[in-house]
């Protein structure tokens, strides 16, 4: 995925945060010697090309509602069907197949802990398989973003 020098600068410089002010894109433009309109068009284009998933807030886990990481050990022949059932739930926001005996890993979020457990219960009943639930106990990372 080819990036222009300006696109690269914007992504590298603003992953950790854009200026918090009423006209943030003008502040970015001023810092980089561009126009506000050019910055807006560049960001819209990066979104259109799906290089950016969004420009906006990143929410910390478990501060708004409750979430958890869960895993299942799904027999190969059932994997596509179970994965589709899991992905179909609106509470599930990530679902990955991984190389392990526990081969289906998903993150789900709901209004509170009871709602999370109710979704897991439903998934277990629908799939006829146990879910290993691994809720977050403590977070340690300092996410500095990616150099591109």
């Amino acid at each position: 995925m080819a990036l222009s020098e300006t696109e690269r600068r914007i992504i590298n410089k603003y992953q950790r945060g854009i200026p918090y002010e009423p006209r943030p894109f003008k502040a970015i433009a001023d810092a980089l010697g561009l126009t506000e309109n050019f910055v807006l068009n560049t960001l819209a284009d990066l979104r259109e090309r799906r290089i950016l998933s969004r420009v906006g807030p990143v929410i910390s886990p478990n501060t708004v509602g409750a979430s958890t990481l869960a895993a299942m050990s799904v027999p190969a022949g059932k994997l596509d069907a179970v994965a589709a059932q899991v992905s179909a739930r609106p509470e599930v926001n990530h679902n990955y197949e991984r190389e392990h005996q526990l081969n289906l890993w998903f993150v789900l979020a709901a209004a509170d802990r009871d709602a999370v457990l109710a979704v897991i219960d439903d998934i277990e009943k629908e799939a006829g398989l146990d879910v290993v639930e691994l809720p977050l106990e403590e977070a340690y990372h300092i996410d500095l973003g990616f150099r591109v």
Binding site: I10, R16, I51, S53, V58
Partner: peptide
């Protein structure tokens, strides 16, 4: 309060070759 970790550009790592 840490509810919002940051407000930034959020890249799609996969599309960037990561």
């Amino acid at each position: 309060d840490g509810v919002i970790r940051r407000i930034g550009v959020v890249p799609n790592h996969y599309r960037l070759g990561i």
